[in-house]
Every structure is written in structure tokens, then in C-alpha cells.
Design a protein around this nucleic acid. Structure first.
Length: 377
RNA sequence: GGAUGGGUAUGCCUAGCGGCGAGGGCAGCGGACUGUAAAUCCGUCACACAGAAACACCGCAGGUUCGAGUCCUGCCCCAUCCA
């Protein structure tokens, strides 16, 4: 299933074969939390900008429209009309992002729905059941994502619980995959490493979950408050303790620079809301850095977002026009920006793969970073 | 000519009914966003600046009052209606 094609230092060029097709890695998964890429991006659009994997969310789809509804409609792939791989996040991140609306217990997490306030209980079994109903290609383990500034004692207890939860996830997923009415009996499960910025906790946890034979392993709980240096350090320390014959997924990261640095440290999968959210907010990625199209200086700028860019937006529209659309709050403005940003990310991943194929990654990374002058953005 | 309702800061709309160095919103300008409660949020938006010390025409001019954007009088504009 997971096959390393080329290596350069710790950086890996690989492919991961699933029932919904083969994923070429390193890859950036395009985030569509509620089974939609925000910004009015359609499946046809994704096909035109190089998207390999789409990411959706267990908690959000459980709340609305309901995983039972999606199961009745044949699963997420049919529902969204997307036949390539889909990864569903488990709801673990919502334990972090909806901190004010939930209570964590050993059995799982009690949420108050952010939509209508109703009580929702989600533990490892529930998360697996929902993801099985959604029938995504890859299900994520139900974890807790502690803040990177959490105290050691809290992180120790949280990680220990996340480990127990992973054992339950694994068992429940095996049971669900064996049921006769399961839509995707080959649904994969990725475990998640936690431990905030404590190296020893990270490493111990990585060793422990590696024994559980998941289909892939993620590093979670990063880019949630710590510095870039701390994040890179944790990745460097942790990756060596995750199975080498399984893909590594760095959850929720990140900026183009974050991705380049992390590929170098051995990460295969990425996802981040940046290209979509920043696109909606008028922040566009270019090889010369990020630009904010709301800025007055683009009012009469007839150039495309990026000279030479082959994305559907740049092939046709000017910065001045897109700025007008954004300021007029026309949906088309956000849509064009999101398309450009996703194309930028997907294309950068393609360049990374090509560079790895050529054994030229280190130099590619250097050139890319210097061009973008953006180790921070 | 008469009646009624209005005129609030560098653009627009608006709160305000005796203690106002006048509150909101829009527009403008800038910023933030990392497994998406985000087409969101924050800042700025007269002068000045946290000081017993500064300082704006709340349509204009007077008046009442310790104190007026707020009450009174006159005037000027605007809107609607009636002649």
C-alpha cells in the first residue's frame, strides 16, 4: 500500500495506494470540513487544480447533515461526487477548537453542538462509527489535541488517554469493517501522536502507538501556539520513532515554508485551512511571498495574481478585478482566490515530488524559500 | 404661503431627550488567521493624548441653566404633505 520511491535525507517520495486510487506523496490534502471546500469550489474545480485528496470532518458532518443521512445516500464519495481519496478527521481537533463547548471524560467527549446547542457524545467508538458511515478512505483516530502550551502533567494524562482511545478505535474499526452493511470495508485508520512540545512524551507515545499497527501515523497537536522552531524540533525528534513503512501525516500544517521544512524531516501528508481561509480573506500565495489583494496598491494592478501561473484564475483575471470583487463582497472574488491558493499548494507539492524524483529537493527547497522570502508567512 | 418631520464629527447612515471629552453601523485604510463555530475577527478612522491638563461650529445666532447635542426664540437648509 505504502511504497517509498525515492529518498533524499529524511525526505521521502512515495505513493500510497487505497481503494479510491493511489496518492502520490508528499501531498497536500484540500480541506473541505463540511464536505465542501469553502469558497464555492466544486468537484470539477478540484479536478482542474491538481487535488489528490479531500479532507472532511467527522464532528461537523455528524452535526449536519448527520452521518446516517450520508450513509443512506451511499457514503461521502457519492454524496460529494468525488471518487478520489477522502480523509476524515475524527473530531479530535474539535476537542481543542470547541474547548468552550465540551467536557472530556475517559469514555469520550461531551460536546454542546455549536449549531443548535444539543448534547453530543463522541468517544472513540462513536467517532469510528460515524467515519464508517461516512465511508471515507482514511479515518483518523479519535484523540485529544492539547494546547502546545499545556502543562506537562496535563499533557501526560491526556496522551495516556489518547493511547487508550487509539486501542478502542482500532478495535471498533476492525469490528465495523467486518459488518455486512459497511460501505467501505477497507477503511483505513491512522493513529495520532501527541505530546505537545515534550520530546520524551512524544517519543514514548510514538513508540507505543507504532505497536498498534495502524495504516498510517499522524503527528497532531502542532501549530497550536508553539514557535516554528519548536514545531520543527518535535517533528525531527518524533518521526524516527514512527513506522518507516507507513505514511506520516502532519496534521493542520501549514504555511508553504512549514511544508518544505517538514517534507525535509520526513512528512508525507499535510492539510491546512490556510489556502482556503486566506483565499477567502484576500491573501494570495505567490512565489514572491504572500500578497493582500485588499490593499489599495492593487486597485489599478492589471497583472494576474502571479505572472506565469497556470491556475484558472491567473490565466484570465487581473489583481484589480479580483480586488474589486472582494471589496464588493462578490462570491466570485473568494472563489477565484481560493482556486489560486489551492493550485499554488497543489502545484508546490508536485514540484516537491518532481524535485525528490530528481534528487534535487534540498536545492529546490532553498530556491523556493528564498523566492518567497517567507520563512514566517 | 401653511403643516409636519429632520439637520450629529475629514464621506454616508444613525443613537442620543439636561452631566457628552457624543455611542453604533457602513465606506475607507491596515493587520491577524496553521487537523475551519471564520465570506470571520482585530485595529484605525477631527485635533490631542492620559495630563489638574488638553480640546472640536452636534445647521447658524441668541437665550434659559451650575451645566445644553438635548429646553426656549429667531433664522438657514432638506424631506413629505396641503394651498
Amino acid at each position: 500500500m505504502y511504497k517509498i520511491l525515492k529518498q533524499e535525507g529524511n525526505a521521502k517520495r512515495a505513493e500510497f495506494t487505497t481503494v479510491h486510487g493511489t496518492i502520490q506523496t508528499p501531498v497536500f490534502m484540500n480541506v473541505g470540513t463540511v464536505a465542501a471546500i469553502k469558497g464555492a469550489v466544486s468537484t470539477e474545480d478540484l479536478e482542474g487544480i491538481g487535488t489528490q485528496v479531500e479532507l472532511s470532518n467527522t464532528y461537523h458532518l455528524h452535526v449536519r447533515p448527520g452521518d446516517q443521512v450520508i450513509k443512506k445516500l451511499g457514503g461521502l464519495h457519492k454524496f460529494m461526487s468525488w471518487d478520489k481519496p477522502i480523509l476524515t478527521d475524527s473530531g479530535g481537533f474539535q476537542v481543542f477548537s470547541l474547548a468552550g463547548l465540551r467536557k472530556i471524560k475517559e469514555e469520550g467527549v461531551y460536546f454542546h453542538s455549536h449549531v443548535d446547542g444539543r448534547k453530543i457524545f463522541m468517544g472513540p467508538e462513536e467517532s469510528m462509527q460515524i467515519q464508517s458511515n461516512l465511508a471515507s478512505t482514511i479515518a483518523m483516530a479519535f484523540d485529544e489535541c492539547p494546547s502546545s502550551v499545556a502543562e506537562r502533567k496535563y499533557v501526560e494524562d491526556s496522551v495516556a488517554r489518547t493511547t487508550r482511545w487509539l486501542v478502542r478505535c482500532k478495535k471498533e474499526m476492525e469490528r465495523l469493517n467486518g459488518l455486512p452493511d459497511t460501505i467501505n470495508p477497507g477503511q483505513l485508520l491512522f493513529g495520532i501522536n501527541q505530546g505537545a512540545i515534550f520530546d520524551d512524551i512524544r517519543i514514548e507515545h510514538a513508540k507505543r502507538i507504532s505497536e498498534l499497527d495502524c495504516d498510517g501515523y499522524a503527528i497532531g497537536g502542532l501549530a497550536v501556539g508553539e514557535s516554528h522552531e519548536q514545531m520543527y524540533h518535535v517533528i525531527e525528534e518524533t518521526v524516527p520513532y514512527l513506522p518507516k513503512d507507513k505514511p506520516t501525516y502532519l496534521m493542520g500544517v501549514g504555511t508553504p515554508a512549514n511544508i518544505l521544512e517538514s517534507v525535509e524531516r520526513g512528512v508525507d501528508f499535510f492539510d491546512c485551512v490556510y489556502p482556503t481561509r486566506n483565499g477567502r480573506h484576500g491573501h494570495l500565495y505567490t512565489n514572491q511571498g504572500k500578497i493582500n489583494l485588499f490593499n489599495a496598491k492593487y486597485e489599478l494592478d492589471e497583472r494576474p495574481i502571479e505572472e506565469g501561473c497556470q491556475c484558472p484564475t491567473c490565466r484570465r483575471y487581473s489583481r484589480a478585478y479580483i480586488r474589486h470583487l472582494l471589496k464588493a463582497k462578490e462570491m466570485l472574488g473568494m472563489r477565484l482566490c481560493v482556486l489560486h491558493n489551492l493550485y499554488f499548494y497543489n502545484t508546490m507539492m508536485e514540484e516537491i515530488r518532481d524535485a525528490l524524483d530528481e534528487g534535487d529537493f534540498v536545492s529546490y527547497k532553498k530556491r523556493k524559500l528564498e523566492g518567497m522570502k517567507m520563512s514566517q508567512s
